[in-house]
């Protein structure tokens, strides 16, 4: 946990995957978590969290359609970043790759 400050925000949101978390949706997740002033982690089934900024780690979750992904964010823009990532997970299209 980072040091608290006036702007430190911690947000958690659960999202049910609309499609398997393959390369393309994983890429969308990482893009949404990059370049925003927040740190975002994902976890599935209580397993270790992964950094959403690592597309390979996000793919490595091996999460499939119907599973619930817990999205956790910390930082000044955590609410925005977590909402964006959760939205991608809920609306991912079921396409190969």
């Amino acid at each position: 946990m980072s040091a608290s400050s006036d702007h430190e925000v911690v947000v958690e949101e659960a999202a049910v995957l609309a499609a398997d978390l393959h390369a393309r949706p994983a890429g969308q997740v990482t893009r949404a978590a990059t370049g925003v002033d927040a740190r975002v982690w994902l976890s599935v089934d209580g397993r270790d969290e992964v950094n959403a900024r690592s597309v390979l780690a996000v793919m490595g979750l091996g999460a499939v359609a119907g599973q619930t992904v817990l999205v956790r964010g910390e930082g000044p823009r955590a609410a925005e970043a977590v909402a964006a990532v959760a939205s991608i997970l809920r609306t991912a299209e079921a396409v190969p790759g």
Binding site: R31, T34, G35, R53, S54, V55, L56, M59
Partner: peptide, 25 residues
């Protein structure tokens, strides 16, 4: 590529590439 497309700096993009070594598939 994903990191660069998110607007990251060159140092961050290099770190993302080199971090690939540590991610199990």
């Amino acid at each position: 590529a994903v990191t660069a497309s998110g607007g990251a700096t060159l140092a961050e993009v290099v770190a993302a590439a080199e971090g690939a070594r540590d991610v199990r598939k």
